[in-house]
């Protein structure tokens, strides 16, 4: 019986799912074990029953409206072409959609602006503490210099080659 615990779960394996050694050992076990042979016969007798029964049950349903209902759920739009973002393909509007579609451009555009704002805040705080009010930052091939004057911050944009 102890052997059965090992071999019973192997019953029903398809060709190639057991190693050659396992298959040979299982065969040897089956030849001497009536209980496992019985289980194996039952497995063979019920093979495919689940699939056939489920198919028969599923076929009782009228599938005619299936596609229409699916299309209604996806907004009755054609399938998204590979390579396009679903939101873009579905005509999503708004700044968030634009950001998603132009992620690189948005980053390149907004990064210096956000950095400049951060520096302005930093410089203002520095001024209040009497520190030097000039910082240089670089982004995407551009050098940006921000000068803090008594009249407010001045942002100087220039190419990194010094022009």
């Amino acid at each position: 019986m102890r052997e059965c615990l090992h071999f019973a779960p192997m019953i029903g394996a398809r060709a190639g799912e057991l190693t050659a050694g396992e298959a040979k050992a299982l065969e040897a076990h089956l030849s001497g074990c009536a209980a496992c042979r019985g289980f194996a016969r039952n497995v063979a007798a019920t093979d495919g029953l689940v699939g056939e029964a489920l198919l028969a049950r599923a076929n009782e349903r009228d599938f005619a409206p299936f596609v229409d209902e699916v299309m209604a759920r996806v907004g009755a739009r054609p399938p998204t072409p590979a390579g396009l973002r679903p939101a873009y393909a579905q005509g999503e509007r708004g700044w968030w959609s634009w950001l998603r579609r132009h992620r690189r451009g948005a980053i390149a555009t907004l990064a210096p602006v956000l950095a400049a704002l951060a520096v302005i805040v930093y410089v203002r705080l520095g001024l209040e503490r009497g520190e030097i009010a000039m910082v240089e930052i670089s982004s995407e091939g551009e050098a940006t210099t921000i000068l803090e004057t008594r009249d407010g911050p001045v942002v100087l944009l220039s190419e990194e080659n010094g022009s």
Partner: peptide, 10 residues
């Protein structure tokens, strides 16, 4: 394993 029977189902 014992409950598996002796192929009665088949």
């Amino acid at each position: 394993v014992a409950e598996a029977g002796e192929g009665i189902l088949s």
